[in-house]
Design a protein around this nucleic acid. Structure first.
Length: 420
RNA sequence: GGGGAGGUGGCUGAGUGGCCGAAAGCACCCGCCUGCUAAGCGGGUAGGGGGUGUAAAGCUCCCUCGAGGGUUCGAAUCCCUCCUUCCCCGCCA
């Protein structure tokens, strides 16, 4: 969330940022509640101060009249405080619904049409034949199965079978190995269910409750991304400034209702209620966050390069970047069969927006007051869609698929999927 | 699931109704002392919020001893609920 001070001092800036992000922000209501809250808070504190003072006097005098007066004061203070607390609760809830501001370098725009292509790597492969889609290939090879998944779970689920399942496992291993060995991240296996406080910390709540799955009767949510457990790992902590940046990488399944995406990407292994992802998270300082953000994006891009997948990097515009992000890049991999780019990674820097919600702070040096950390995250990469890009890019005219070289060691030396 | 014991500052740990936001030790910081180091001596070191202040500093008040409620003039301390950690038993991958 944003500091109340910022909203008090520069409400226009916050209003403008929200408008450009196409989000609503109840600024006027917040300012009004802030005034009311401080007024009641002040009243309560004034009474309390007097009460504390007189209470000490009572301890000496044991004056019955004074005792009666103190009883009244206590009641009065309690009433004022209750009022203040009720207002503050409303205020806090509204604050959680105010979107983040954004970086100067973010282009202004309404939709994905206004995103900027920052760079492009590789080229569309010339296969020499008409490319097929991953689902076409996958079903023909018997490594991807949507029919049985629909029976077992419903639409937007899939089974991977045989070499398909093994390809997914290989990708997870490969990505985790590269990020830990070559990029310096610490591997984590997080809980796949998290509580509400964690969901609030990363800004998945309260605004996006409808896209996450909740366990009935419990304060638990299925993780929509490993970002939630990773970032919240340090919730309510004051970190040692020397230890920053902290770098974590985790594999997890991700669960999303895809509410609002009805009819979109219904075909194929693209937009599922459950998909696999390797996620990168950094916790760092205000001074280094933008630089660490660029590095994290490069770490994600490195995976695509090693796999030899043609991709481009988009700088997301204000209207397409999201509620919590301060700046965001999307990595999109080319899928020849689908004849389009697919988003395989989204890398974001949040400034202190998440850290304020999750109360993650650090002490820059001994004896200095704590400051809110900056958080960064990005997919490195979404496994599911990476499989699509690999299948479509490395398909051969007979419908088999060449295994990219770096993955072969994770697949027992297998060179071609579907070879007989 | 049943029974028992705990959750206090960066850490260890004392504190069972006011003198306690909190002893002591450790760690750390500043200073003194000292060929150097160590030891020793003196001082300092929790977080959040409100008010004041152009701001920093400072001053001042309020809150916080796992969380929330209650009793009381007054709660770290008494009562209730919840969370959580550890131990024993049962069950179980």
């Amino acid at each position: 969330m944003l500091p109340l001070e910022l909203i008090r001092k520069d409400p226009e800036r916050v209003r403008r940022a929200a408008a450009l992000k196409k989000e609503s922000a109840p600024i006027d209501e917040i300012l009004e509640l802030d005034r009311e809250w401080r007024s009641h808070q002040n009243a309560a504190e004034t009474i309390k101060a007097e009460q504390n003072r007189l209470s000490k006097e009572f301890a000496k005098t044991r004056d019955e009249q004074l005792k009666e007066r103190l009883r009244e004061m206590a009641e009065h203070a309690k009433a004022e405080l209750a009022e203040a607390d009720a207002i503050k609760a409303k205020l806090d809830d509204l604050l959680l619904r105010v979107p983040n501001i954004f970086d100067e370098s973010v282009p202004l725009g309404d939709s994905e049409a206004d995103n900027v292509v920052l760079r492009e790597w590789g080229a569309k492969p010339d296969l020499g034949f008409s490319p097929r889609t991953h689902y076409d290939l996958g079903e023909a090879l018997g490594i991807m199965d949507f029919e049985h998944a629909a029976r077992v779970a419903g639409s937007r689920f899939a089974f991977l079978l045989g070499e398909g399942a093994r390809l997914e496992r290989a990708l997870v291993q490969f990505m985790l190995d590269v990020h830990t060995r070559d990029h310096g991240y610490t591997e984590v296996l997080p809980p796949f269910l998290v509580n509400s406080a964690s969901m609030v910390g990363t800004a998945n709540l309260p605004k996006f409750a409808d896209v996450a799955y909740r366990v009935e009767g419990e304060d638990l949510w299925l993780v929509p991304t490993a970002e939630v457990p990773l970032t919240n790992f340090h919730r309510d902590e004051i970190l040692d400034g020397e230890s920053l940046p902290l770098k974590y990488v985790a594999y997890s399944p991700c669960f999303r209702t895809e509410a609002g995406a009805a009819g979109k990407d219904t075909r194929g292994f693209i937009r599922l209620h459950q998909f696999s992802k390797v996620e990168l998270v950094k916790v760092t300082t205000a001074e280094t966050s933008m630089e660490e953000f660029e590095k994290l994006t490069a770490d994600a891009e490195d995976i695509l390069k090693r796999l030899g997948l043609h991709y481009h990097t988009l700088l997301m515009c204000t209207g397409d970047m999201g509620f919590a992000q301060y700046k965001k890049y999307d990595l999109e991999a080319w899928c020849p069969g689908l004849d389009r780019f697919l988003e395989v990674s989204s890398c974001s820097v949040f400034n202190d927006f998440q850290a304020m919600r999750a109360n993650i702070r650090y002490r820059p040096a001994r004896g200095t007051p704590p400051r809110f950390a900056h958080t960064i995250n990005g997919s490195g990469l979404a496994i599911t869609r990476t499989i699509d890009a690999i299948m479509e890019t490395y398909q051969r005219s007979d419908g088999t698929i060449t295994v990219p070289e770096p993955l072969r060691q994770y697949m027992g030396g297998l060179e071609v999927i579907g070879a007989r």
